[in-house]
Design a binder for these strands. Structure first.
Lengths: 197, 197, 197, 197
DNA sequence: AATGAATGAGCATTCATTCAT
DNA sequence: TATGAATGAATGCTCATTCAT
């Protein structure tokens, strides 16, 4: 029952943040939508920003966690690079709501900015490691790998935002998008040699 | 004198939005910083959001305008693709403040969201045309070119954000970043043939 | 307790509107006088004008309600016409505060103007019916009865305003005023025959 | 030219006060309507209230001045009482704008309240003298005459407001209204003897 | 744990008035 | 006289948060 109320409020908040934005959503809106009393909100959250921070943190954690794991065996046949993009798109699809919320509302406070910056930094480290493992850019310095990693993140995030949030496409687009991104990075007749080396 | 006050207010607003965020910045902060009276603000702007919208609009216009033009002759020797990335990074560098502000504060209202969405759409169309002219992906469908275009935008924007805003690097990094991005897209020994064909 | 606060605010508002006028009275004055917090005001009223509208509406309703009922038996001996004037003066006396407030402040908004116009129209209809029942002007057309009815309203309202508001006389003046008004309309030696028929 | 501007502003103010009310009309509205600059307003008036006071004062003066004069010879045939009502209705018709403005906006300030109260007092004195001259109520005390006088004022003012402002009827209604009011006060077969004595 | 009435600091905006030109 | 850009005091209203029940 208790956790019911908490998750009701989180769901309500996600819905309202998505619909009207963080700053436009009042705590009174959230509790009305969740069907609880005004005071109940403060039993579970420090305040509105604390709720936002919690949501952002858990979504961003989920995204980076999903990308932390190495390539699954079943993905090998499609090329080691393809699975990475595919998996990233999939996890962005599942977290498209937070993608939209953070895009619409920005970071809303210094604390959430720190979380966001830390997220991108961690993402960059994960991608950089993958790039190293894949030996795509063997001669790159650390900084150059960093640039490459951030590029990949921006690429996937922007396309995910445009397709899953703006165009509101479903997950069946993931394959098509992943293919383009992979081919684009490694034009036809070139990919296999590079990623296979 | 009159335009003095207006641009003082715009400068003050940019500074304060950058430092403390849009929602944290009061109109009273802006006028104090600009050295004008409270009421003067409303001689030049409808309200705080109108000011933000004006700033965002003109910055985004400047960015997309800068990318509209075709390659300059002087760029040809470095590869037709390189100039595009270089120019994009340069204009993002010059508009890094609005990049930070919009990243930190999101779109703040439906109207600004529309402006932002229109900006990305226009950018995509520009990039798509450049990709067609360059014949990099001759066999791509329109939709695939769209994916490619948004990828480029996300790539450049994310790297620009990380280097020019988070790391606060200067314009001397533009060359280094552009080189990585160009090489990354077209691995060594491959670029010339593709862009040259 | 809750209704306590609401009626405290209404009382405070009536007092302050009477003393200093509607436009001169700030919401902060009302809440200070009522001993509640600023925000509490907005729990019970939409805003300052909503409060005014509510007060005006209920006072005007009370006035017209009091005049709707037919003559009481006990009044018969004094003449059926006398009781009407007497009762009107009495209800105006009890509502002399709103009389003063509306006189001093006018209607303050289109919505309150509509309420006021509707009040006078309803009053006119009530008086017109009484005039018909009393058969004072048997040969009058509907429009002439309307003129007569509005005349009576104006007469009583002006005298009530002058005696109860400007001169601040008490209810003991009601009899004296009613007598003059009745005699004036029906000069000595004439009244009985008319109202008796 | 100079007086042109002043009367332009007075006309504009009358129009706007009538259309939207005193408090809703900004000085900037008045000067725009009058076609003069903002500062010019303060060359001719102390402020918005000073303008209102001036308008109210001159209109109310006009009304009471019109009623000060005794009965004209040409009116004698219609009954000495009739001309009084007729003349009052006529002057109220000509000043129906200020009637509406003061009714809609109340007195707006203590100073204008004083002017208004003084107006009614003067009107009462004028009517009282007329009543004495006409010997309609020979046995009345001063106070009773005062009641009678205020009754007449209220009667005429209310009917004038309803017909000339609310119903927006033209001056051709004056005769019809005056007849009803005169007959009402002095029922048929009674008037002549009374007013003739 | 749950409620919801009460709080009050906070802020955008208005507009009558001034004054340098 | 006339201007109109500039002023800044004034205030209605919001809403996150608290706390007695």
């Amino acid at each position: 029952m208790a956790e019911d109320k908490k998750s009701n409020m989180i769901d309500a908040a996600l819905k309202l943040f998505e619909e009207q934005g963080y700053h436009q959503t009042k705590v009174s809106d959230i509790v009305r939508e969740a069907g609880v009393a005004q005071g109940t909100f403060y039993l579970y959250f420090q305040g509105k920003e604390d709720l936002f921070r919690g949501i952002a943190e858990s979504c961003l954690d989920e995204i980076s966690a999903a990308l932390k794991h190495g390539p699954e065996q079943s993905c090998q046949d499609d090329g080691v690079y393809y699975w990475m993009i595919h998996r990233a798109l999939t996890v962005y699809y599942h977290n498209r709501t937070i993608l939209q919320i953070m895009y619409r509302n920005g970071v809303a406070s210094q604390e959430i900015k720190d979380i966001s910056d830390a997220f991108y930094h961690e993402m960059m480290l994960i991608i950089k490691e993958h790039l190293k493992e894949l030996s795509i850019f063997p001669q790159y310095t650390e900084e150059q790998l960093e640039i490459a990693a951030y590029s990949k993140i921006g690429m996937v995030e922007m396309v995910a935002y445009q397709w899953f949030v703006v165009k509101q496409c479903g997950p069946d687009y993931i394959n098509a998008i992943a293919e383009v991104i992979v081919q684009m990075d490694c034009p036809p007749g070139f990919k296999m040699e590079v990623s296979g080396e």
